[in-house]
Design a protein around this nucleic acid. Structure first.
Length: 569
RNA sequence: CGGGAUGUGGCCCAGCCUGGUAGGGCACUGCGUUCGGGACGCAGGAGUCGCGCGUUCAAAUCGCGCCAUCCCGACCA
């Protein structure tokens, strides 16, 4: 393609409403333009990258045995009422009425549509397993879209759905997708890590997120420094400490202390001159409609996802003030386990501590030198806290580290959730009707592109990995008015094009500096510079965007030289 | 939705406090010079100052309301 004919509006200045590198560079390099909040147009260069990623996804999905379909974006409300999500999904689901006043939504995801399709078309176990995928525009009316295509409202997503006759089959489908995702992100040149993720209400332990490591990532994940263990922060398990040696030795007598207006852990520590690890936090939650007290050491945080999973509750939230008063007999800030009127669950961090401070269950009082089981009994210990940097790995015992990441993919074993709700059944070998076992698997296409830039750029611009670069090569004639230069550039351009190489010829009548800056900004992996000095020697310069290294290559050998590089890549 | 900020040619911003002629840089058009890391000169085109109402002789500037955008918290690919 000739640069002079392309819609490729690069800018020197950084748009003021872009915060992170990938968003700034996507705007500056002319990949995207914003139409409205969280809604973006892809320009030619940006769309080429999208298509490259999509094609990698297609190849790997096809290779894994999935078949591509294309489902409607507009979906009737009845389907969503069937699954129960019309009322559950909330404001993120964009709803509207047609001219007949019928309710519709724009699909934020396609479980309903695919399940309805498959239940009508599949009757027997002989037709299973089945894995269908599509690459389609989704709309989620996000509370707060941000970071360009990283979290937009309208976005391209690959979503796949597997249907199996058995649990084992579903696990096999899951594993195939897991493997395919690894290949996809590897081919996109990303540094990523599959991490164990919370599977929430839906149950089962089969959920992994594919996280691209990036400091600007919105998610936190943990990984072990020694073994392959990696998990989403909210999922990461904390080991039960060794050796429960709680005895009454060196126990001091219980002591109620007046602590006027002292509520938070910090205030308690300052007031009583103790450290947070000598205090026990008592937090009152409402699990569905039942109050529960969760205990954790003062220097730790409660992980609400773990607590919810432990309790198997559908809804979990911090209790309101009136509940706290009812359960503890005191206002917020003084809750303690002694004499409390609800179920008590203690985090493992409560093992092995003694003479600790607890709330007094009485306004403006705390209790010191509390010990178990002397002063109150803990019948349930569980892993309830948020893991911390430096904790021990739950698998191997080595050190845990926390890093930030961008979730680009998610694989999920759905089980029977949708097949039951929507009656997706088949006739098994034994002549009995059974529910299909489902899985769903998503990849954010635009987010993957943004994540790639986030991970691969420098102060001059984007550095595309060869596999998803919009073009492989850019030819930069330093002066179009120099007859020898422009002729050589034209000839080389024709040579590369006929060799099937994706190339831009920067035929603009611009100074060399401008062309170099733009070439760096848009991140083309290879740049061929053609100048009069080189022509005199019969060579061109091939510069590698990533390493910055420059090779002098004879003009006659450039096409072969480039072809070889691309074959290796 | 709550908290904070911003809205001025396509882009980045000044002007607002202290009301009176809309300004700079980038980009764009023409001519000339220049030509290997975002050149220079001259001449030009381009703006309902987010929208509405109000205060005032007079509003980009002051007041009120609305809208939009961005950042920080609960959702998610």
């Amino acid at each position: 393609m000739r640069y002079s004919e392309m819609l490729l509006p690069t800018t020197k200045e950084t748009p003021s409403d872009a915060e992170i590198a990938s968003h700034q560079l996507m705007l500056r390099a002319g990949l995207i333009r914003k139409l409205a909040g969280g809604i973006y147009s892809y320009l030619p260069l940006g769309y080429r990258v999208i298509r490259k990623v999509e094609n990698i996804i297609r190849e790997e999905m096809d290779r894994a045995g999935a078949q591509e379909v294309f489902l409607p974006a507009v979906q009737p409300a009845e389907l969503w009422m069937e699954s129960g999500r019309w009322n559950m999904y909330g404001k993120e689901l964009l709803r509207f009425k047609d001219r007949h006043n019928r309710n519709y939504c724009i699909g934020p995801t396609h479980e309903e549509v695919i399940t309805a399709l498959v239940r009508d078309e599949i009757q027997t176990y002989r037709q299973l397993p089945l894995n269908l995928y599509q690459i389609q525009t989704k709309f989620r009316d996000e509370i707060r879209p941000r970071f360009g295509t990283m979290r937009s409202r309208e976005f391209g997503m690959k979503d796949a759905y597997s249907f199996d006759a058995t649990e084992e089959g579903a696990e096999d489908s899951y594993r195939k997708m897991f493997d395919a995702y690894n290949r996809i992100f590897e081919r996109c040149g990303l540094h990523f890590r599959p991490v164990e993720a919370d599977s929430g209400n839906i149950g089962g332990s089969f959920s992994h997120e594919f996280m691209v490591t990036a400091d600007s990532g919105e998610d936190a994940m943990v990984h072990c420094t020694a073994c392959p263990y990696a998990a989403n922060l909210e999922k990461a398990e904390c080991s039960r400490p060794e050796g429960e040696t709680v005895t009454d030795d060196d126990s001091l007598p219980l002591e109620e202390v007046h602590t006027p207006d002292v509520r938070t852990i910090e205030e308690v520590c300052a007031f009583l001159d103790v450290s947070p690890s000598d205090v026990v936090k008592t937090m009152i939650f409402m699990s569905d409609d039942t109050p529960v007290a969760a205990l954790v050491r003062g220097d730790e945080e409660i992980n609400e996802v773990k607590l919810r999973n432990y309790l198997k509750s559908d809804r979990l939230e911090l209790a309101m003030d009136d509940t706290i008063l009812e359960v503890t007999g005191s206002p917020r800030g003084f809750a303690g386990p002694i004499g409390i009127k609800c179920r008590i669950i203690a985090d493992y961090s409560l093992l092995n501590i003694k003479n600790f401070v607890v709330g007094g269950n009485r306004e403006n009082y705390h209790i010191q030198n509390c010990n178990t089981p002397r002063d109150f009994k803990i019948s349930e210990y569980a892993d309830l806290r948020v893991i911390r940097e430096g904790d021990v790995c739950p698998r191997c015992g080595e050190t845990i580290r926390i890093v930030r990441g961008i979730e680009v993919g998610h694989v999920f074993k759905l089980g029977l959730k949708y097949s039951k709700a929507m009656k997706a059944m088949f006739l098994d070998r034994d002549g009995k009707e059974k529910y299909m076992v489902m899985g769903c698997y998503g990849i954010g296409v635009g987010r993957t592109v943004a994540a790639c830039i986030e991970q691969s750029h420098d102060e001059n611009g984007i550095i595309w990995p060869m596999a998803i670069a919009p073009y492989h090569v850019i030819i930069t004639p330093v002066n179009m008015n120099d007859e020898a230069i422009s002729r050589t550039a034209e000839e080389l351009y024709r040579g590369l094009v006929s060799a099937g190489i994706q190339v831009i010829l920067d035929d603009r009548d611009e100074r060399a500096g401008v062309k170099f800056k733009d070439a760096d900004l848009i991140g083309i992996p290879l740049r061929i510079t053609i100048g009069s000095k080189g022509i005199a020697e019969g060579v061109t310069e091939v510069k590698f965007r990533k390493s910055g290294t420059v090779e002098k290559v004879p003009i006659t050998a450039v096409v072969d030289y480039i072809s070889d590089i691309l074959v290796d890549a």
